[in-house]
């Protein structure tokens, strides 16, 4: 649990950080809150020679709600997400999710940007971002580009981000409909055995005008359940459609055996957790 040697850099601007990454190449890693990277370094599973810490870059820390859109700076901590009154009104599912991540001490340190950029299938924010149809702003020395959360994750720890890019901002639409993030875990601080993010909006006629479902830690990437989401919008919410949606989601997950239990159990738990999330979200819609 003693990391290897590394040099530590604390640039005070995005350009400086990107320049460092460019100059240092493969030997450098960006560090945000560090709660994934530092344990990996202590286990010497990661041995970067340079850490580029983003915490001194003030532009990366903000929560802005404007014109029906929410933008969050990558270095915003989970605690800041939880504490934001604006966010609680404009996207209450973010707070509900963040409260189920780790424990209060870690949430003071852990950031939303680190959580979504690391590509760990156990992280909770990636599925939430897919559920919210968020877009990630990626900055490189050559300029910026935008990648949808639903297209960002390729495999465990592999994402659309280039090594020389920094994920700077997360943007998603205001969502004030029904919502739920349901997570089964063994204990505080644990990754999900199964977790589901659900957004459901009740139309004026009582129909389901918008539905979005994504799942955490049930494959090597977060799973956005496009078919199930669309089906709920078309069919409305009732016992049969919920059952169909759950069934559809379970067909596209691929959990693995681990200390949380075998895949068969996780699949069953995922179905239960998802059903509860849908019920909960609809009751709030």
């Amino acid at each position: 649990m003693i990391p290897g040697r590394f040099d530590y850099h604390q640039p005070d601007s995005l350009t400086a950080a990107l320049t460092l990454l460019n100059d240092l190449g493969d030997d450098a890693r960006v560090i945000a809150g560090g709660h994934s990277l530092i344990p990996m370094m202590k286990l010497r599973l990661a041995m970067p020679e340079h850490l580029v810490d983003l915490k001194a870059i003030s532009d990366l820390k903000h929560i802005t709600v404007k014109d029906g859109s929410i933008s969050i700076g990558a270095m915003t901590t989970q605690a800041e997400l939880i504490g934001s009154a604006e966010l609680a009104l404009s996207a209450p599912i973010v707070k509900e999710t963040a409260l189920q991540i780790a424990d209060p001490q870690i949430r003071y340190q852990g950031t939303i940007g680190g959580n979504v950029a690391n590509g760990d299938p156990g992280n909770d924010m990636p599925a939430l971002m897919q559920c919210l149809d968020a877009e990630f702003q990626l900055s490189g020395l050559d300029g910026q580009r935008t990648v949808k959360a639903r297209e960002f994750y390729e495999a465990a720890y592999f994402t659309a981000r280039d090594d020389l890019e920094i994920l700077t901002e997360i943007v998603f639409p205001v969502c004030t409909g029904g919502y739920a993030y349901e997570k089964q875990k063994r204990k505080i601080g644990d990754y999900a055995t199964a977790a589901a993010a659900v957004l459901l909006t009740r139309g004026a006629d009582g129909s389901c005008s918008h539905a979005s479902i994504a799942l955490t830690n049930l494959a090597d990437t977060p799973i956005y359940c496009e078919d199930a989401s669309k089906a709920l919008m078309n069919s409305g919410i009732d016992d049969a459609s919920i059952a169909a949606a759950v069934k559809s989601c379970l067909e596209i997950i691929d959990p693995v055996d681990d200390n949380r239990g075998p895949a068969a159990f996780k699949k069953h738990a995922a179905g239960i957790v998802l059903k509860r999330a849908i019920d909960n979200a609809w009751s709030r819609a």
């Binding site: 089964q184 949380r260 239990g261 075998p262 159990f265 069953h268 738990a269």
Partner: peptide, 16 residues
């Protein structure tokens, strides 16, 4: 008696 072992007990007893 963690989650999955309890679940397995229930499953083995046909409770699912």
């Amino acid at each position: 008696h963690d989650h999955w072992r309890i679940w397995k007990t229930a499953n083995d007893l046909g409770l699912h």
